[in-house]
Amino acid sequence: MVPLWMYLIVAAGMFSIGVYGVLSRRNAVAILMSVELMLNAIIINLVAFWRYVTPTNMSGQAFAAFVFVVAAAEAAIGLAIVLAIYRNRRSTVVEDVNLLKG
């Protein structure tokens, strides 16, 4: 059987790719996709931990299911906001969205 640490390495790698994507991408939709990648890495983590650490207790699976639900809600809201931005400015590149300077 594949040992637990392999799953964790895959998840950590996916999470890191997601973080890199969020920090380096300039398109809002690409950033959104990177965040989804991070959430998927978390789901792998949760399910792997559930299978190897506490296979009798379902809370890990329940946790993973809730992460799915919230990820879907977040994607829906995020795409709606990106759409509103696009209608206003004809661009979804984050650097073009700069009326407010921090």
Binding site: V35, I42, N45, E74, A84, I85, L99
Partner: peptide
């Protein structure tokens, strides 16, 4: 614009917290 910035930072932070 404010909504987009809040969303991008907020969802990123949630993902880190969740990890």
């Amino acid at each position: 614009e404010s909504g987009m910035k809040y969303f991008l930072f907020g969802s990123f932070a949630s993902a880190i917290l969740l990890y």
